[in-house]
């Protein structure tokens, strides 16, 4: 029979007082952990990456003499002629649409500007020719293209 006025003794499973203290500490620890997680997520957040300005186009042997190969990821057309490698940007100088290649050069699907096979302006609304990009071969024999100066 249990005495009605029996006091909890040391060593009893969990007193009400200790439970509340534990609950308080646990809540604080949980909040701290969640806040830490949020803080780490905040600090490690990466905004939208800027478009790259350097592209490894692979082995130069993939671009044989006489070829005109369009690399959509840049976008640019790589020309290999007797003068070496050239890269023509396929971004329209009018408003920035991606240019398409045609049988006799390039054409903008947005507003109808057309360019010769050497990128020279044939008709507007663009007011200047397509831009040539810097391209070079690195030590491993890869073509490296730069989209900015």
């Amino acid at each position: 029979m249990i005495a009605m006025n029996a006091m909890p003794r040391k060593g009893d499973s969990l007193s009400r007082r200790n439970f509340l203290i534990l609950l308080g500490k646990g809540s604080l620890a949980g909040s701290a952990l969640i806040s830490m997680g949020v803080l780490v997520r905040f600090i490690s957040f990466h905004s939208e990456a800027s478009p790259p300005t350097l592209y490894d186009l692979g082995l130069e042997t993939n671009y044989p003499l006489g070829s005109r190969i369009t690399v959509q990821s840049v976008p640019a057309t790589i020309i290999h002629d007797s003068q070496g490698y050239h890269a023509i940007s396929l971004v329209c100088p009018h408003l920035g649409c991606v240019i398409k290649t045609t049988s006799d050069g390039f054409a903008c699907p947005c507003h109808g500007s057309r360019f010769g096979s050497d990128g020279s302006l044939r008709n507007g609304p663009a007011s200047k020719s397509l831009t040539f990009l810097q391209v070079e071969t690195n030590a491993e024999g890869h073509l490296i293209l730069y989209t900015s100066e």
């Binding site: 308080g24 500490k25 809540s27 604080l28 949980g30 909040s31 969640i34 806040s35």
Partner: peptide, 10 residues
């Protein structure tokens, strides 16, 4: 207060 903070952050 600790409990409320935990619930709010959760």
């Amino acid at each position: 207060a600790s409990l409320l903070l935990f619930v709010a952050t959760g």
